[in-house]
């Protein structure tokens, strides 16, 4: 579970933009930030009078970061999963899953019991925190002619006092695996190799330093 102790609607995006440099500049800025005792994101500070918008440590997350939805196909049912950031919650009653692709019929999502939340101004509601998974049985009338698409609607809030409008997304469930869908899009930066080579070069240099001034006893 990702920890989002800090709440930044554009802030997190800003942080990503800041990270998207060359490896060298990213490393140098990280080093500089470490030396100064600050976070890399602070380089991207925005006007602070716009509290709640890219401003400070109590900002809110964008809805797609606060509530991350994914789905996968298990053959006769879909599993729709929401990962909910710390300090945020989804309303059980607001979760809907509908068929989007032709000739697909989905049943009502089967959801686990949530936490009962009572608000004097809104009444009693069941909510989910951290994560929730819905089981959605389906039948296909097209013998697999169309890729499965579902329309997912959900609505949630931040405990700190902010509610997002209902969010509707068309989701293409992945087949048979719950792996993170976007992982394949990440360019293969060879950091591990760099780290290993760096370590090897370090040991070589250390050896040269220790070797300096000494004669090597080579066999005649």
């Amino acid at each position: 579970m990702q920890h989002y102790g800090r709440w930044r609607p554009g802030g997190l995006t800003t942080k990503v933009r800041c990270m998207q440099r060359t490896p060298t500049t990213a490393f140098l800025s990280l080093l500089l930030a470490c030396l100064l005792g600050g976070a890399p994101g602070s380089v991207c500070a925005k006007p602070y009078w716009m509290r709640g918008i890219e401003s400070n440590d109590t900002d809110f997350l964008p809805p797609d970061i606060a509530f991350r939805v994914s789905a996968h196909d298990e053959g006769n049912a879909l599993k729709v999963r929401w990962v909910i950031a710390d300090g945020y919650y989804l309303y059980k009653q607001k979760i809907e899953v509908k068929a989007e692709s032709p000739d697909l019929v989905v049943s009502a999502p089967q959801l686990p019991s949530g936490v009962v939340k009572t608000d004097p101004y809104l009444g009693t509601q069941e909510i989910y925190t951290q994560q929730v998974e819905a089981q959605v049985p389906y039948t296909r009338m097209d013998a697999g002619a169309h890729p499965i698409q579902i329309k997912v609607t959900y609505q949630g809030c931040a405990e700190a006092g902010l509610c997002y409008p209902p969010i509707t997304k068309v989701v293409f469930p992945s087949a048979g695996t719950t792996a993170a869908p976007a992982a394949a899009n990440i360019p293969p930066y060879p950091w591990e190799s760099i780290a290993i080579i760096g370590g090897a070069v370090g040991f070589l240099m250390a050896g040269l330093v220790l070797r300096k001034g000494r004669k090597l006893d080579l066999p005649a």
């Binding site: 995006t13 990503v16 789905a71 997304k169 068309v170 989701v171 869908p181 976007a182 990440i186």
Partner: peptide
């Protein structure tokens, strides 16, 4: 960060 930005499995 990339996972957070693209974590939703659909447009």
């Amino acid at each position: 960060s990339a996972n957070q930005e693209h974590g939703v499995a659909a447009p």
